[in-house]
Design a protein around this nucleic acid. Structure first.
Length: 628
RNA sequence: GGUUGUAUAGCUCAAUUGGAUAGAGCAUCUGACUACGAAUCAGAAGGUUUAAGGUUCGACUCCUUAUACGACCA
């Protein structure tokens, strides 16, 4: 089955609100999930035979055995003491003995307090390994999760270039989308561009007043940076005006609202909403520059979108929804003419939907965008990748849509991630401490280049291949650095650590892949086949068994990452896998092994590891090189 | 003021969602490249999981209170 066929098989068919178990029989079960299930079934039978009791498989706690004990799966027996009327160790002994005697897959056991450690027979591991090898690339991993998902991420403003915070957002959104695809879901990546509003007018006004007709071409500057420059200039002059007014004795909040530049910006926004030709023309021109710049950044960081939405194209629809709510008596109007929704019953507050002058707020256009998205995709899950400072806003959005009884409200999920801090503290535009995305990418690529040239292992690569490699490594370092942390946690960005190539880093994992690639090239030269019959293999080495177990975990890792919307789960796994492989590589000979079957098996293990590393890293949006 | 999030080794992060002796990386120290890539591996040292109570066979994880930092709503 090729990936295309797979995605066709799992086309959306599950109605919203229902878990998608429908296609389960079509999935290729992933070996370790199946094995764990098999062991649970065997345990249920064992409990029945030994104790004459019925305990459902769902009540059994199975976990991977800790490294310091023999075994692969561990049953925690404490919870069974009440049902079986025996002590935890007694239960473990009895079940372990029965399984070892009656189940060929269990080769041994040991009991430590309330833990029954079960050893899985080598033959069973080899059978599972063969299944893994035969599993096609891209075969979906069953999860019972949503089948048709929309992931909204990036969502930039069109008044400035992307910065470090956007990078965490972009990498998360892209990765979560890829992870969900790996479960067999149809996933659409969308970008909601914030292209209208007072902040856009500020950069336009800045350009009008302080610019001299520059264009990206005339100044040889990226469009988003050009526009961002004038946004900053606006803020600078505006602050001076406010300062001036305050010095003249005007109260600060009054000064902020009545500074000439602010009045002009508001005036411009009104003109924009009224469709003033000159204003709209400037708006189009400057936004066009920004899109060009943003797209260049997207291309450089390797993220993509299936569809773009623009707030300028959704706020009117949002206003219609507000009107609908008013007509149905769900919203109310205050004396000043503003429109509100009362969400006190939902544990939230009262929230404004339209200002007294009729202009819209963020929430207004979000109502419209949600409706558009549902109309376009009929999703059963809609994910918003948005920083946690907007937790409240997202609750309000969902509650408001629920108040309007929109069928798509329940499927909204806010993937809330923590902000990125610098060693010097928060990033602040005003204090100029914002880390620019384009500049950061240049730096990580340059650092990767310097390190790679110093290692001197890439002779024979063309200039283009080298450039490509430096980019792969630099971005690998950066992406891994930002993705290895649990999304919901605030994180610290240390510039020096982000370009590290050793230890718990992306390049460490990439290195492991390149190392295996080199080994396979040599194996091929030596004429060693990767596929062979391993049934005659003698007892597995400890490190070999660990590799098989680690490789077999892949499916449950993907399932867990999808369930919790967390690329960090995959990141951790990719690292563990690479780490385990390097240990294996140091402990046993591969190409130097004289026993032909053993040698072939170890090459096969290496090949499967490379494949799994690549698949895992691709879920993070990270490429892996053949040499580095 | 109200709501909410976070707190684990010197630093940055984990901990299979209530299970065993809380694990990695960085930094520090020690050892391993004329066997396949040393961006690697092996080892040492580093912890009262912010504090105090509680729940139970078992708590970093759940509950209560306090403290610190952050976010949001006025």
């Amino acid at each position: 089955m090729d990936p295309a066929a797979a995605s066709a098989t799992f086309a959306p068919s599950i109605p919203a609100g229902q878990p998608g178990f429908g296609g389960a029989s079509l999935y290729i079960p992933h070996p370790v999930q199946e094995l764990e299930q098999d062991i649970k079934t065997a345990l249920v039978a064992a409990i029945q035979q030994v104790f004459g009791a019925e305990v459902p498989a769902t009540q059994l706690t199975i976990q991977p055995t800790r490294k310091e004990f023999a075994g692969s799966f561990t049953l925690v027996t404490f919870p069974l003491t009440k049902a079986l009327g025996k002590g935890p160790e007694q239960i473990g002994q009895a079940l372990g003995e029965w399984l070892t005697a009656n189940d060929a897959r269990i080769s041994g056991y040991n009991v430590v307090k309330g833990f029954l450690n079960l050893e899985v027979a080598d033959a069973e591991w080899l059978r599972r390994f063969a299944q893994l090898v035969q599993r096609p690339d891209g075969a979906p991993v069953p999860t019972g999760g949503p089948q048709n998902v929309v992931v909204e991420y990036s969502s930039p403003n069109t008044n400035k270039p992307l910065h470090l915070g956007h990078l965490r957002n972009n990498f998360l959104g892209y990765s979560v989308a890829e992870i969900l695809k790996a479960t067999g879901a149809t996933v659409s990546k969308v970008n909601l561009v914030n292209d209208r509003g007072i902040h856009i007018c500020k950069s336009m006004l800045g350009y009008q007043q302080f610019g001299h007709g520059e264009t990206p071409q005339s100044d040889n500057i990226k469009g988003d940076h050009l526009v961002g420059k004038y946004y900053v200039l606006f803020e600078k002059h505006y602050r001076e005006q406010v300062k001036q007014l305050v010095a003249e004795g005007v109260a600060e909040d009054v000064a902020k609202a009545s500074a000439p530049l602010m009045l002009e910006a508001r005036d411009m926004l009104q003109k924009w909403e009224a469709g003033d030709e000159a204003v709209v023309a400037l708006w189009k021109q400057m936004n066009g520059w920004v899109y060009e710049g943003h797209n260049a950044t997207y291309a450089a960081i390797g993220v993509d979108f299936d569809k773009f939405y623009y707030e300028s194209g959704t706020y009117l629809l949002g206003k219609e929804r507000v009107q609908e709510g008013l007509d149905r008596g769900l919203f109310y109007r205050k004396e000043d003419g503003s429109t509100w929704v009362d969400l006190a019953a939902e544990g939230l507050d009262q929230k404004i939907l339209l200002r007294s002058d009729g202009t819209s707020v963020y929430l207004t256009q979000d109502l419209g965008t949600a409706e558009l998205k549902y109309g376009d995709f009929h999703y059963d899950s809609s994910i918003y990748v948005i920083a946690d400072e907007q937790n409240y806003h997202m609750q309000v959005l969902q509650a408001t849509l629920q108040k309007l009884e929109k069928p798509y409200a329940a499927a909204i999920h806010h993937l809330s991630y923590g902000m990125v801090d610098l060693p010097t503290g928060k990033m602040k535009t005003r204090e100029g401490t914002v880390v620019d995305a384009d500049e950061l990418v240049r730096e990580v690529v340059a650092a990767a280049k310097a390190a790679t040239l110093e290692k001197g292992k890439i002779e024979g690569l063309t200039e283009d291949e080298q450039t490509q490699l430096f980019h792969t490594l630099g971005l690998g370092a950066l992406k891994y650095y930002l993705l290895k942390v649990d999304p919901k946690k605030r994180m610290l960005f240390n510039p020096e650590e982000s370009v590290q190539l050793e230890g718990h880093t992306g390049p460490f994992i990439q290195y492991s892949h390149a190392r295996i690639a080199q080994l396979r090239r040599k194996a091929q030269q030596m004429g060693i086949a990767e596929a062979a019959d391993f049934t005659t293999l003698p007892a597995l080495e400890k490190t070999e068994r660990e590799m098989v177990e680690e490789l077999a975990r892949y499916g449950s890792v993907v399932a867990e990452a999808a369930r919790s919307f967390s690329p960090a789960v995959v990141s951790q796994y990719a690292y563990d896998l690479a780490k385990a492989y390097n240990r294996f590589y140091a402990e046993v000979p591969v190409l130097q092994e004289t026993d032909e079957t053993k040698r072939a098996f170890r090459v096969a293990l290496s090949a499967q590891t490379a494949r799994t590393i690549k698949a895992s890293m691709n879920l993070l949006g990270i490429e892996v090189p053949e040499r580095m």
